[in-house]
Design a protein around this nucleic acid. Sequence first.
DNA 1: AAAAGATTGTGATCTACATCACGTAACCAA
DNA 2: TTGGTTACGTGATGTAGATCACAATCTTTT
Lengths: 221, 221
Amino acid sequence: MIGRKKLCPFEPLHLIKKTFVPLPTLNLSTFFMNTKEILQQHIAKTASLTEEQFDYFFSHFKPLSFKKGQTIISEGDKVECEYFVISGCLKAFFINDEIKMYILQFAMPTWWTSDYDALYNQTAATINVDCISDVELLCLSNNDREKLCNEFHQIEHFFRWRTNKGYIASQKRLLSFMNNNVKTRYEELMVLYPQLYNLVPKHLIAAYLGVSRETLSRLNA
Amino acid sequence: MIGRKKLCPFEPLHLIKKTFVPLPTLNLSTFFMNTKEILQQHIAKTASLTEEQFDYFFSHFKPLSFKKGQTIISEGDKVECEYFVISGCLKAFFINDEIKMYILQFAMPTWWTSDYDALYNQTAATINVDCISDVELLCLSNNDREKLCNEFHQIEHFFRWRTNKGYIASQKRLLSFMNNNVKTRYEELMVLYPQLYNLVPKHLIAAYLGVSRETLSRLNA
DNA sequence: AAAAGATTGTGATCTACATCACGTAACCAA
DNA sequence: TTGGTTACGTGATGTAGATCACAATCTTTT
């Protein structure tokens, strides 16, 4: 665990008042599943694969473990893979003039992350990905994804839907950025992902919201 | 044509100095193609369909014409279709508190537009789409898209790539929003789409950049 | 051609957020 | 336990961009 443990003021009151209840997004059933089952359950929501097909699909993923603070993609790298998060939390971020950091995405269990621009267009990475906590990942290469999409219609279907969801979420975030002030965006984020409140330090939340850590700190008053 | 006709200061100098040259993005060959050929050429870039398959695909599109100022999607509507632009220019926008407008997308020829959140999730529209100029569109229903994606692997492939490109562009715009000031964002937009300089009024450019029209106006100084 | 509406520029003032500076508390490693 | 690092709060001050107000063009309609 990283950051201080405090009650998240954005959780519904009944959760705060009662004794500890598992956070809704920390799915306990997921916690006891193995890596393969986690991916299988994730895929099954949008694509139907036979056991054999899924085994074949799964055989293209490489399991990886990283420690807190380790880097997975650095600016300038050739990007070969995308990553499916089994446990832990990553950040995908951009560093401006070697000074300011902007976080594009926190990647939590069952989320996918990479520098998709660099990955699809085979250009050097412009964003970085590193580990906010110890993490377990499944790594899928760009070539294998395209091969699998080509071999199985259902897999292409899955990836269309995944990207679709990402696109819609990205449009919403853009709108929120234009339309709302920092306080509103912070509240939106905390309502959507209350686990972030204790999982990541506040200056990273600020970097996600696109404000200074000082301004974020002053919002509580 | 809408807006004043002035030389776009963001075009390369040699284009400004010489007598009129067609803008690079106004593809003259496209101009003389018919509706079906425009869609066919667009699809052919990412999917290979036989003539019969394309005819079948095309038969699901409904051609529509609108006049400048007409509304295609209003907030609160049930959204049934997405639109492929043949000619003209649309804007997809959000209105905040019945006062401020934020433009999510200008849709130009061979671009697709809709309220994708409402379309995919079958919820009421939160964004509006209307016509900045007279437009010709091809309309494809959500049901037909899903049916076609299911029937033809290559069509699902096409839509995966289309969404993918949109996702990457959206992420880039988000980063630019966090990282750059108005002037830089304006210059980026004008370099990417110089035709917008004369095609749409400046207050719409401002609404796309997320600033007031006054601030945009003052940038020239 | 005249009237009405849209588009754009510009001054004056206000405000949300950034930046700099400093202090305190929690965590970690030896 | 101690010393170093990271996280976080808060005052003082600076600034990009918003808002309000008014005027000058340009475009469209009648």
